[in-house]
Nucleic acid binder design. Structure first.
Lengths: 152, 152
DNA sequence: ATATCATGTAATTTTGAAAATTGCAAGCTG
DNA sequence: CAGCTTGCAATTTTCAAAATTACATGATAT
């Protein structure tokens, strides 16, 4: 399949909104930055809203974060848009008549959980403020002025 | 896309071979356990071989692990079959004319690397012997006799 | 108040990476 | 030699995600 870029796109949406100086930001504007379509952006925003990370109102183009970026972790965003989907996937289609096959996957399941936990623990420590900070650093190093939503 | 189950399948192959008492194990036999086809199993085995985890000879059905399962980590297997493919994926198709979009993804990249490192560090601590141990425990709890390659 | 632009959401189509399949040359083994 | 096997390349199928389409509902400004 295609790789899921929902976490990257959702973080993009959140940071784009945070970075915006203008009061009004439409899904169309955000979509242009991600090179996608407004409906997809709104789907992401709906999930972020359901997770309590974003506020938005029908008909009005002024979304806003519910909390300070320092209080929103990458894990929050991950849970919002990937909803429990694991990073590693078992092969659930093994031969049910083969005990070895069945129980090897069960055994793997237990250890996959540890990897998932480690990844999530790390994501919990990364905040949107951290990412935004890195963003500003990179922009400075490249001598680029952040705002683009006014121009493009 | 489909989810990749290569890591789970490759671990399955390794443990199936380790668990086998019979000297001869064909790719067809392993494939039956994973509910797949021999060619796919051989593709995985080719990668495991290239990574130095497995020995096999053309024409002869007697593969064997190159090291003790206690000396083979889940990360070894992951690197062998996923070859540097990350767990999280950036959105590389952003608008190149939007600095915000471009640099947000660059910033994310840096933090994704930390998550990847954490996951890999955890995988490095899990050995095939650990997984095989869990496998035996689960079999015992379920009162199931492990070997299946003799029967099915 | 009404024309215009936004959101929210469902339904459908397209895309793309992985698995499945096919085919066959090369090699072991009885 | 006959009947297995592996190794590997090429093709087809699968299926989750993204893209697209459509439209009802709601805001906003002139």
């Amino acid at each position: 399949m295609k790789y899921s870029t929902r976490l990257a796109d959702a973080a993009h949406v959140m940071l784009f909104i945070h970075n915006a100086k203008a009061p009004a930001i439409s899904s169309a504007e955000i979509a242009k930055s991600i090179c996608t379509n407004p409906a997809y952006v709104r789907q992401l925003m709906a999930k972020l809203k359901a997770a309590g990370l974003l506020l938005s109102t029908r008909g009005a183009a002024h979304p806003q974060l519910t909390r300070d970026p320092a209080d929103i972790s990458l894990l929050d965003v991950y849970n919002a848009v990937e909803g429990g989907k694991p990073l590693l996937h078992l092969d659930t289609h093994v031969n049910p008549e083969c005990n070895v096959g069945v129980y090897i996957q069960y055994a793997l399941d237990a250890h996959y959980a540890d990897v998932q936990k480690a990844a999530e623990a790390r994501m919990a420590k990364i905040t949107l403020a951290d990412i935004y900070g890195t963003f500003l650093d990179l922009c400075e190093k490249a001598q680029v002025t952040p705002p683009c939503q006014s121009g493009t």
